[in-house]
């Protein structure tokens, strides 16, 4: 068992969720409640990581974040080191490739709130922030949980993008999924098996929790309106 890789993966997944959930809530709420030109195009861009091969996404991120790119140079100027092949670079990539896993369940959850409930909040005198905090967030609980669990689990398992952007630097960018690959390459099937089993069990538990929580949330609020 590669404990360092496990810890790194957990750290990356937690940081990704911490960044992506608040950002996802704002993006999803905007997409769910506003109509504007090119909305389908914007939605498609956010959904792109679902269909794009991870290595292709990884390649473009490598180019976009690399030392020759504007963001890469800006980051190097600020911190003194490059963005690619570091934990920070991996985190940026992780946030990007998880966008649809966070936004889609959140957007569906916002869309499920009846329009008149939002109008009622306005007519009660609630500001947009008060409405989000007191009315909408409690009603999208299941969507929040689903978005969090999917993002976390997907980060633990992502391979292609991580390898392209992070390489495989132990303690820095070598995640559990890459460690499994390395063990298989080194004919350590027992080590790979143990770590695979860990990811398998975690994934089953995570998905199970999401389904149970969604069902409970629906039972609690579903028939109210």
């Amino acid at each position: 068992m590669d404990t360092a890789a496990l810890l790194l993966s957990l750290q990356l997944a937690a940081a990704t969720v911490a960044i992506l959930l608040p950002a996802g809530v704002l993006i999803a709420r905007f997409l769910a409640t506003r109509e504007f030109a090119f909305k389908p195009f914007v939605e498609a861009v956010f959904a792109l990581p679902l269909v794009l091969p991870p290595t292709v996404l990884g390649y473009y991120l490598l180019v976009a974040l690399g030392a020759d790119s504007l963001p890469g140079r800006g980051y190097e100027w600020l911190t003194g080191h490059t963005l690619v092949f570091t934990f920070d670079g991996l985190l940026v990539a992780s946030v990007i490739f998880n966008l649809p896993f966070a936004i889609q369940p959140l957007q569906r959850a916002f869309e499920a709130i009846p329009e008149d409930v939002l109008h009622a909040a306005s007519c009660c005198g609630l500001t947009s922030v008060q409405s989000l905090w007191r009315i909408e967030l409690p009603l999208i609980g299941a969507g929040l949980l689903t978005a969090g669990v999917l993002t976390f689990a997907h980060t633990l398992g992502e391979f292609g993008v991580v390898l392209m952007v992070g390489g495989s630097i132990p303690g820095e960018t070598k995640t559990l999924a890459i460690s499994i690959y390395d063990r298989v390459q080194g004919f350590d099937m027992a080590g790979a098996g143990l770590m695979s089993l860990l990811l398998l069990v975690f994934s089953i538990v995570a998905i199970g929790v999401t389904f149970v929580a969604s069902a409970r949330h629906r039972r609690r609020h579903g028939s109210a309106d």
């Binding site: 008149d116 109008h119 007519c123 009315i135 409690p138 309106d225």
Partner: peptide, 26 residues
């Protein structure tokens, strides 16, 4: 304005009292 919607549009996660209190910002 006091608005009573056709299907009431109550806040389903709040009690009757909490629903009423939402309109009391003033």
């Amino acid at each position: 304005v006091g608005f009573v919607f056709q299907h009431y549009a109550l806040f389903p996660h709040l009690t009757a009292q909490e629903n009423v209190m939402q309109a009391m910002g003033h």
